[in-house]
Design a protein around this nucleic acid. Structure first.
Lengths: 199, 199
DNA sequence: GGCTTAAGTCAACAGCCATTGACATGAAGC
DNA sequence: GCTTCATGTCAATGGCTGTTGACTTAAGCC
């Protein structure tokens, strides 16, 4: 875990509200979402979360119970249940491909949520917690979204491809540029359209 | 790390070859591939690897140098450099889709190799180690394989989709059956053909 | 048989982790 | 002003980790 973690504490020394359980809890949860999302469950230390939130480790136990419970809550907070409804079915293929190419207008919040989920999905510590959630909130909405007889198989294929683009984006880091970006968007769009528009 | 790890030791008590550095080294490497592949870098303990290999932890240091070096070597061993050449370009789309659906004839060795890579990809500890390898052995071959002007962007899109199917497979666990399986294969095939056959 | 050296064993170290109970302190109610 | 209790702080604990040096033992050679 060589990732250095230095952030300005939530409260400056001598801050206005010194004692505010609700605010402290929120700060911890926010820090947890950040660190779990970037580092994954196993590589995140509660001490670092507390430090980022400007709180003490013991408060995590008091407010959340423990690491796993905190993770579950952070997971819930990062799950945008409406993330699919945001897309327009007809322009989905191109919009999604463009988002995955990266660039100035990308939805950072959405990207972060997905990264959080992927990290959780591939860690054996959290996979059991997440598999059900993936099923319920990712696969099922797509299935409903497509909504015809072939939906289950189609939904699985579409979900798989979407996950792949998210992982590739996660690994890649930077945004694509120039001709490579254009070709990427073009072919990815064609690919997704193949499924979305299969009527 | 709640995953119990009980395996029959490599050597029975009072075995024939008691002192064989080469065999010991190989046993450790094999155990490392197994555990790193199933649990990921962070959740794998050197003591467990040594136990599975029927060896002592200190030998890992002597033969490999340390955890990271052992991981790198296991990574190399799990990387089938010819995994793309195994596919026939014309039947790739259907073959790959079928493989991802799972079933009785799947290539367990190949599946394991991919799992290893994916676990490594989503752990921040090993991502730096892996990104270069992914680039060199996954993305570049696909790019070469496609081999035209649009290749970089196309290769990225194809690689992303392929990764996604592997992840979905990893998360899913069991094989698909019946109509869902058929629809899955059909649509996934169409999807991959969209890119492979884009000439 | 005795010697040399590689192979295997053991115990301990230092560091990090989540967890926890005891303690200090500030704010609200009387 | 005093009591009360939620809020925040601190320090310690036990467990697990990778690493390491010193030890024991078997195998090969003279």
């Amino acid at each position: 875990m060589p990732v250095a973690e230095v952030r300005t504490p939530q409260r400056a020394p001598g801050a206005p509200r010194r004692r505010d359980a609700e605010a402290t809890r929120a700060a911890i949860l926010e820090a947890a979402r950040d660190q779990f999302g970037r580092l994954g469950y196993d590589c995140t230390a509660l001490r670092d979360i507390a430090a980022e939130a400007g709180a003490d480790v013991a408060l995590i136990k008091r407010y959340f119970g423990g690491k796993e419970a905190l993770f579950t809550e952070a997971l819930k907070a990062s799950f945008r249940s409406d993330f699919l409804r945001d897309w327009d079915l007809r322009s989905f293929a191109r919009d999604f491909a463009t988002a995955m190419a990266g660039g100035p207008h990308e939805d950072a919040e959405r990207t972060h949520s997905f990264q959080f989920l992927l990290r959780a999905a591939t860690s054996p510590s959290t996979a059991p917690l997440l598999n059900a959630a993936i099923q319920e909130r990712f696969f099922e909405p797509i299935r409903y979204w497509l909504g015809d007889a072939d939906a289950p198989g189609r939904a699985r294929a579409l979900a798989a491809a979407a996950i792949g683009f998210l992982v590739e984006r996660l690994i890649r880091g930077e945004a694509l540029v120039g001709a490579e970006r254009d070709a990427f968007i073009e072919h990815a769009t064609a690919m997704f359209e193949q499924i979305v528009a299969a009527d």
